[in-house]
Amino acid sequence: TTLTVNTQTYTFTSEEEAREFARRYGAKTIRKTNGTWEVHG
């Protein structure tokens, strides 16, 4: 199964959650914005 996250942004309140998600789905960018963490595919 392949998950494609081209134009979607996922927002997390903790860096740990964001990094775990990025690691699991191979997202390329993690960015902190206004106190939340954004993961970009």
Rank of each mutant, 00 (worst) to 15 (best):
T1H: 12
T1C: 15
T1M: 11
T1G: 13
T1W: 04
T1S: 12
T2G: 14
T2M: 11
T2P: 11
T2E: 14
T2N: 13
T2H: 14
T2F: 05
T2V: 09
T2Y: 04
L3F: 05
L3E: 13
L3Q: 14
L3C: 15
L3V: 13
L3W: 03
L3I: 14
T4E: 12
T4Q: 12
T4W: 04
T4L: 11
V5Q: 13
V5K: 12
V5M: 08
V5S: 13
V5R: 08
N6W: 06
N6H: 10
N6P: 13
N6T: 11
N6K: 06
N6Q: 09
N6F: 07
T7Y: 12
T7D: 12
T7S: 10
T7H: 14
T7E: 12
T7Q: 10
Q8L: 12
Q8K: 11
Q8C: 15
Q8G: 11
Q8D: 09
Q8N: 10
Q8M: 11
Q8I: 12
T9D: 05
T9M: 11
T9W: 13
T9L: 10
T9R: 09
T9A: 07
T9Y: 13
Y10R: 06
Y10D: 02
Y10V: 07
Y10T: 05
Y10E: 02
T11E: 07
T11G: 03
T11I: 14
T11Y: 13
F12N: 00
F12D: 00
F12E: 00
F12Q: 00
F12R: 00
T13A: 11
T13Q: 09
T13I: 08
T13S: 10
T13P: 06
S14R: 03
S14A: 03
S14E: 05
S14D: 08
S14P: 00
S14K: 04
S14N: 10
E15K: 02
E15P: 02
E15A: 05
E15N: 00
E15R: 04
E15I: 05
E15W: 11
E15Y: 14
E15D: 02
E15S: 02
E16P: 03
E16M: 07
E16A: 11
E16Y: 07
E16F: 07
E16T: 07
E17V: 04
E17T: 03
E17I: 04
E17N: 03
E17Q: 06
E17D: 08
A18W: 01
A18E: 00
A18H: 00
A18Y: 01
A18R: 00
A18V: 00
R19T: 07
R19V: 09
R19N: 10
R19E: 12
E20H: 03
E20A: 07
E20F: 03
E20L: 05
F21M: 04
F21V: 03
F21H: 06
F21I: 02
F21T: 01
A22N: 01
A22V: 03
A22C: 12
A22P: 00
A22E: 04
A22W: 03
A22Q: 03
A22S: 02
A22D: 01
A22G: 03
A22L: 05
A22H: 02
R23K: 13
R23T: 08
R23P: 01
R23E: 14
R24G: 03
R24M: 10
R24P: 00
R24I: 10
R24A: 06
R24D: 05
R24L: 11
Y25E: 04
Y25R: 06
Y25I: 15
Y25N: 09
Y25L: 12
G26L: 04
G26W: 03
G26N: 07
G26R: 05
G26Y: 03
G26S: 04
G26F: 04
A27T: 06
A27S: 07
A27D: 04
A27H: 13
A27N: 05
A27C: 15
A27M: 15
A27P: 03
A27F: 15
K28S: 13
K28C: 15
K28P: 08
K28L: 12
K28F: 07
K28Q: 11
T29A: 14
T29S: 09
I30H: 05
I30K: 02
I30V: 10
I30F: 04
I30A: 03
I30M: 04
I30T: 06
R31G: 04
R31M: 12
R31T: 13
R31N: 07
R31S: 08
R31F: 10
R31E: 08
R31I: 13
K32C: 15
K32Q: 11
K32P: 04
K32D: 04
K32F: 14
T33F: 08
T33G: 10
T33C: 15
T33Q: 09
T33I: 14
N34I: 02
N34V: 02
N34M: 03
N34R: 02
N34Q: 04
N34L: 04
N34Y: 01
N34D: 13
N34G: 06
G35N: 07
G35P: 01
G35T: 04
G35I: 01
G35Y: 03
G35D: 08
G35W: 01
G35H: 04
G35S: 04
T36Q: 11
T36F: 12
T36N: 09
T36Y: 13
T36W: 07
T36R: 08
W37A: 01
W37T: 01
W37P: 00
W37L: 01
E38L: 07
E38N: 01
E38T: 06
E38G: 02
E38K: 02
E38Y: 06
E38A: 04
E38V: 11
V39F: 01
V39A: 02
V39S: 01
V39N: 00
H40K: 11
H40E: 15
H40I: 15
H40Q: 14
H40V: 15
G41Q: 09
G41T: 15
G41A: 12
G41F: 15
G41H: 14
